[in-house]
């Protein structure tokens, strides 16, 4: 059945979602670090059908100079969807939605970055969504923390993010685009596991109080799983770089 003819009830049949997942399952995730030569740090992440490239530059001289802060680094973040990332061509200029997402991603990452180590500089994050299928802000955050770590920027913790939502009256993890559009609620959560801190919490639609609490718990639990994947991806990259001698010592 074409996606456009689905009704909200079709989203969950016999406990199965349209893509064959159960309510508490994440989509398959693939992470790669250090994919771009020219950027100081970079990452590529596939989260279901989302394909996202992240580049980080910095700390570098802040330009224009007036954006420099005397006591810490300025963090700039650009979330951008490629014109070909969605079904209908998206104009390349930043939309209202992209500007907002850039802001919330920046604010989700800021608590992790020790920006006070590099006063008067700027750290620039570029998140380019090559293909989008719902939950791209969360995947963008996951990719951006990897790219920041890859750039050697001091961070308290990696930030992991995932969303929970409600489809056909039932709580569901990690909504895809169609589930987001036909579902009743969507709640992206970004989380720093080491400090047990939530750095992003947004909500679209409505949850009851109990659903909200259960949803938050589910999101946090799965952020922890994503966090482990992130750590693995980083270690893998550097073990390859360092060769087998990397852990053998001098």
């Amino acid at each position: 059945m074409p996606m456009s003819q689905l009704s909200p009830e079709d989203l969950l049949r016999n406990g199965m979602r349209v893509d064959g997942r159960r309510w508490n399952e994440l989509r398959p995730i693939k992470m790669e670090v250090g994919v771009l030569d020219k950027a100081d740090g970079s990452a590529y992440i596939e989260h279901g059908k989302n394909k996202i490239l992240v580049a980080v530059y910095g700390p570098r001289e802040a330009h224009p100079k007036h954006i420099a802060l005397p006591d810490r680094a300025t963090i700039k973040c650009r979330y951008h969807m490629a014109p070909f990332s969605v079904d209908e061509r998206k104009p390349p200029a930043p939309s209202r939605r992209e500007i907002e997402i850039s802001k919330v991603i920046r604010e989700a990452l800021e608590p992790a970055i020790l920006s006070e180590y590099y006063p008067r500089t700027s750290i620039d994050i570029f998140i380019e969504v090559l293909q989008s299928d719902g939950g791209s802000r969360c995947a963008g955050i996951n990719g951006a923390s990897l790219a920041l770590a890859d750039a050697g920027i001091p961070m308290r913790d990696l930030v992991a993010a995932c969303a929970v939502g409600k489809i056909a009256g039932q709580l569901a993890l990690d909504l895809s685009d169609v589930e987001d559009k036909l579902g009743e609620a969507d709640m992206p959560v970004a989380y720093m596991p080491t400090y047990d801190s939530v750095t992003l919490l947004q909500m679209d639609g409505s949850f009851t109080h109990d659903e909200f609490m259960a949803g938050l718990e589910l999101a946090v639990e799965n952020c922890k799983r994503i966090y482990q994947m992130q750590k693995e991806a980083l270690r893998r990259q550097y073990l390859e770089v360092g060769g087998e001698g990397a852990s053998a010592g001098r």
Partner: peptide
């Protein structure tokens, strides 16, 4: 953690 082991941000 082991000495000279690779660590990532947030590792205890």
């Amino acid at each position: 953690v082991g000495r000279r082991e690779i660590v990532v941000p947030g590792d205890l």
